[in-house]
Design a protein around this nucleic acid. Sequence first.
RNA 1: UGCCUCGUGGUGUAAUUGGCAACACGUCUGACUCUGGAUCAGAAGAGUUCAGGUUCGAGCCCUGACGAGGCAGCCA
Length: 567
Amino acid sequence: MSNGNEGRNLHFIEEIVEEDIRTGKHGGRILTRFPPEPNGYLHIGHAKSICLNFGLAKKYNGKCNLRFDDTNPVTEDVEYVDSIKEDIRWLGFDWEDREFFASDYFQQLFDWAILLIKKGVAYVDDCSADEVSASRGTPTRPGKESPFRNRSVEENLDLFIRMSKGEFPDGTKVLRAKIDMASPNMHMRDPVMYRIKHAHHHRTGDKWCIYPMYDYAHGQCDFIENITHSVCTLEFEVHKPLYDWFLDNIIDDPGVNKSRTRQYEFARLNLNYTVMSKRMLLKLVKENYVNGWDDPRMPTISGLRRRGYTSGSIRDFADRVGVAKRENIIDIGLLEFCIREDLNKKAQRLMAVINPLKVVIENYPEGVTEELEAVNNPEDESMGTRKVPFSRVIYIEKDDFMEEPPKKFFRLSPGSEVRLRYAYFMKCTDVVKNGAGEITELRCTYDPESKGGKSPDGRKVKSTIHWVSAEHAIEAEVRLYDRLFVKENPYEAEEGKTFVDNLNPDSLKTVTGYIEPFAKGSKPLDKFQFERIGYFCLDPDSSGNKLIFNRTVTLKDSWAKITSKEC
RNA sequence: UGCCUCGUGGUGUAAUUGGCAACACGUCUGACUCUGGAUCAGAAGAGUUCAGGUUCGAGCCCUGACGAGGCAGCCA
């Protein structure tokens, strides 16, 4: 199921790779890279990129490097480096010993900058950030050349070296590539290569006070690592001429140039009912709209993991959404489909009641407990069976009873008979209410002949409901998660409002659930199907005497569909 | 009024490189079922943004419109 797309049509990057292999462009060698910036946690969009890059390597007998794009020390942190590594590993990919950092190459990048200065294609500019920005022009108007553009090579060399030695404060000078201030491509208008930042870097410490910009670093890092296919998202499309320009000016070996790394762009993943921008996710975390990066409502990989998603389901998802250049918004329902499909085959079944209604079975003897046999997973016989205790007082789901049932309601109602899963047929004889007229309890009778749920005389019931023995059930906290935003496109907000105003106030509901004793001893992230309700996993916050379950996703519910259609 | 990229069922992705559009999700039927789950069978839904052109034949090629996204960080 997961990332095996054999027999399927190739996407455009696979086509390029196969063509390159066919023509022997890189001697048949394939080396991709995943280049995250360690300034936030990875999200499902990154998962698409990870699956693409590592997947390409796997499929074509190549390798994929992990390279942290750590060229901006003020936003980056080791916390993020660690989480990123954990997430990639959890997704099932291995970069072996090829763990790199752009900062590993700072010296080489610096030396190449010197080379470009000597070639007369890079210069030190004393203009302020505002001045540089003002003289850059606009997409429709050409920019103006900096007054410092024509400094001598000697002066540029001297200034740049002094920049690197810390002689100038932040923001007073930059190194720029001398390209074309009138280029229709904004990125070619003398882009900044280095800026001064007297900041502590998580790896190089205080060794440097000048840091390369993305554009100057990325292509050269790819080149140093001998990457064959540098795959990135669409917004970098306009950077490609610059990517090539730097390499053209640094490498003048025609033999090397022939098989040089090339950049290819694909459309990033977008999901409805959530946001995917690291900046916005950071805001949700920092301003406590959610409980951290791994909040189960977050589209982060760590959030999805804690929500109960399996890595296989995410790989399957990445496979299903495809790779193309067209902007896309994937329905979150597809992600839900993927996890249901995976968990249906794997998850241990359990009976749990999350909205309890007490039922007394009047003709069942008091003080008696029976152990009834239940199937652990009807999709996988090898998972065996378990015993579930049954007694006179049980809980059933409030939703499974209606005093005045509509026509299509098959569950319990006064006088009707249902099957208690793996137990007995049961009939409701009386409804007990409190002063406010709310139903507080049901009085029922069972048919002792129907033990195990088999009809004694061949009579049928329209429905089977789940239950839990009141005396034996474990109380647990159950966290019912729903989509994070109420709007398909969270950014669509009225005047003066922002995406946080579209947060779903009901994205988390916490209830007390009653779960069959089997749940005891489960470990964090263990996955279950609470029969007829949904898939759940044990939250890592659980302790020995307090179990917490996260709802991963509900089961498909055709009754809910009927009711929602009628109102 | 610049440059780049992209327009195929509701959503995504295909179409052997010119032979009357396929797959998945979703939707809707029905069958089966000790989960209104799962499974199985079936159906509806696009004539490919539009207009011209080339061709026996165009989603694929050409021209021109229109629409969407990206680009004006010393972010990546």
